[in-house]
């Protein structure tokens, strides 16, 4: 590895900070997440660096815990979406035939329904708990990952080395995970960065609409929702989570770009 370009470094530092904050939330947050410590919408002060929220909780604390929830939900949902989407996509490409047809048409069907509407419908009939939220988001997003990984894998399946593995008598597991997956990883990793950001936006949207993370717990979307009325009175509390979402999205994207550039080098670079 040579030098890390400055945008990637920027992305790495901020992504690292956000994740560290998520992991260490109880240690670094100055107050408890649901603790009412002051007046409604107090301005920033030495005690409350970002001021207080709509019912007098410390906004910085809320932001830190909210970030934790947002990142946790987005990460787990991305993992679920990738594991299911990529596995199904790769197997569909390798098996081909009617299995591929059936899966692909089913995915087309799912993709024809707008994701947000679909999620709203599902979440309104299911109990909204964190695990349900994560699984619903993950599975809905898996359709996108399926499409991508199948497209990538179809190109790789026709390569001679895959034919050589088939002729050797290798099972599907070996072909998918040892022959195809390592060669499909670059686009998948880049896509993973992108999907993670979409997940952050998705969970924020759901929470903003009230079907995501339920109070008193909050994620960044929820904090925007709680404080949105303040904007009318010139109180910027809702802007903090918005800025956090934007910063996280951009930093993760910068990292994903860099990883993609590094691993897709035609000169035999390996990621």
């Amino acid at each position: 590895m040579t030098r890390i370009p400055i945008p990637a470094l920027f992305g790495l530092v901020f992504t690292g900070l956000f994740f560290a904050m998520a992991v260490l939330a109880p240690l670094i947050a100055p107050y408890g997440p649901a603790e009412i410590v002051g007046d409604v919408w107090e301005p920033a002060s030495a005690d409350h660096l970002m001021g207080t929220d709509n019912i007098g909780r410390d906004l910085l604390t809320r932001m830190i815990y909210g970030g934790r929830t947002t990142i946790l939900v987005a990460t787990l949902a991305t993992v679920i979406s990738f594991v299911t989407g990529a596995c199904l996509g790769l197997f569909a490409a390798v098996i081909g035939g009617w299995v591929d047809q059936a899966l692909s048409r089913f995915v087309d069907l799912m993709m024809s329904i707008p994701t947000l509407i679909f999620a709203l419908v599902v979440l309104s009939v299911m109990p909204v708990t964190l695990p349900v939220l994560i699984v619903v988001m993950g599975l809905l997003d898996a359709t996108r990952v399926y499409r991508l990984s199948r497209a990538v894998a179809v190109d790789i399946t026709v390569m001679d080395f895959v034919e050589a593995a088939r002729l050797r008598g290798e099972g599907r597991g070996w072909i998918v995970f040892r022959e195809i997956l390592p060669n499909a990883l670059s686009p998948l990793v880049a896509e993973m960065g992108l999907r993670f950001i979409f997940m952050v936006l998705f969970v924020s949207t759901l929470s903003f609409l009230g079907l995501g993370v339920q109070p008193p717990a909050a994620d960044w979307g929820g904090i925007v929702k709680e404080n949105k009325d303040g904007i009318v009175y010139g109180i910027g509390a809702a802007l903090w989570p918005a800025a956090a979402i934007a910063t996280l999205a951009i930093s993760v994207n910068l990292v994903a770009d860099w990883v993609l550039g590094r691993t897709t080098s035609l000169k035999g670079g390996r990621g």
């Binding site: 001679d160 080395f161 002729l167 050797r168 008598g169 040892r178 022959e179 390592p182 060669n183 035999g268």
Partner: peptide
């Protein structure tokens, strides 16, 4: 068909390809 052949039959007949580039997994 090759997938109906026992492993030993597959072993007995090996193949070398024209394009060695794509006949080997670049990540192995």
């Amino acid at each position: 068909e090759y997938d109906a052949r026992p492993r030993d039959d597959l072993r007995e007949i090996q193949m070398i390809y024209q394009m060695a580039d794509v006949a080997m997994n670049p990540r192995q």
